[in-house]
């Protein structure tokens, strides 16, 4: 109803009617020229031939994708078999991002709920406390985490001095460290959209549920979660997508064994070992995966909106 009224008023009496295109032009130009066009170029590059010192030769080639999916032996003439190296890196990235998302949800949902149900000025203080870390430089946060969990870092020192452990626990350079890093990097992304959903949640639904003999648990699973689901999905995507392409956490906390997509891409553009078409191809594959997730999300949103 309110939306209808708003729509009406903009269509009839917009102050700057007719100037839309003109006002939008700078955004179109900048984002179109420096982001859309580059992504197009990247797609083209993924079909070119590699030049050994980085860069490309302008000659069509499927080598980049071939290298990603198939192994043709040392000399490239053996019958093609599936190349697992890169697919495994993708799997590992998906797994790591998934674990990080799961734990973010586990911690993020109760936190978001708790904050959204505060009253008075306390609420914005809580919310502010959750948002601050997000605005702190990601690199610095990752370094802090690395410092904290090193074998000789404060965490181990502290646990040793308390006598909880008798020798340092080895966390750094494990896949757990990467999960922890991703979780730590993107946790605020989980809290904020869920918080926004819970804010809009009408607590009368919980009252009705309780009135109709639902336990707290049944109210949570049957009423609250289905209703705030859009926020939960948004939070999961906001954690999962950047985790998937993350570079800093796997690089600084994971070490060589815990290579993820981000590092694989980065390697292709550094120094002489690089392979630009391959890097472009891996980026394209990552981008396609992200687009699939986002499309799924958009359709989900459209479905919710239709209700």
């Amino acid at each position: 109803m309110a939306a209808q009224i708003a729509k009406k008023s903009t269509s009839n009496t917009s102050t700057y009617a007719g100037l839309g295109v003109f006002l939008m032009l700078p955004s179109w130009a900048v984002i179109g020229f420096f982001l859309v066009l580059p992504v197009g170029m990247m797609l083209i590059y993924s079909f070119l031939t590699k030049e050994f010192r980085g860069g490309v030769i302008w000659e069509f080639s499927l080598n980049a994708y071939d290298q990603f999916f198939f192994d043709r032996g040392l000399f490239g003439d053996a019958p093609p078999v599936i190349e697992w190296t890169y697919i495994n890196i993708f799997w590992r990235s998906i797994w790591q991002a998934g674990v990080a998302t799961f734990f973010s949800l586990l911690i993020g949902f109760p936190t978001a709920w708790f904050i959204a149900t505060r009253t008075g000025p306390n609420k914005s203080v809580w919310l502010f406390l959750i948002t601050i870390p997000y605005w702190v430089n990601l690199l610095i946060r990752t370094i802090s985490m690395k410092f904290l969990i090193r074998d000789t870092g404060p965490l181990n020192e502290w646990l040793l001095s308390l006598g909880v452990i008798s020798e340092p626990i080895h966390i750094i350079n494990t896949s757990f460290a990467v999960q922890l890093g991703l979780f730590y990097s993107y946790l605020p992304f989980m809290v904020l959209p869920i918080y926004a959903s819970v804010e809009r949640y009408n607590f009368a639904y919980s009252e009705v549920a309780a009135d109709l003999y639902a336990s707290r648990r049944a109210t949570l699973t049957k009423i609250i979660i289905p209703i705030v689901k859009p926020g939960i999905i948004a939070g999961c995507i906001l954690v999962f997508v950047p985790s998937l392409g993350a570079f800093l956490a796997p690089d600084l906390l994971g070490g060589a064994k815990n290579f993820m997509i981000g590092s694989l891409i980065e390697e292709q553009f550094k120094g002489n070992a690089g392979n630009w078409p391959f890097g472009a191809a891996v980026s394209m594959i990552l981008l396609s995966m992200v687009l699939v997730v986002l499309t799924f999300y958009a359709r989900q949103q459209a479905k919710e909106g239709a209700r």
Partner: peptide, 10 residues
């Protein structure tokens, strides 16, 4: 059981 003023149908 209660019939709420704003109904609050799920």
């Amino acid at each position: 059981n209660t019939v709420f003023q704003q109904y609050a149908l799920f």
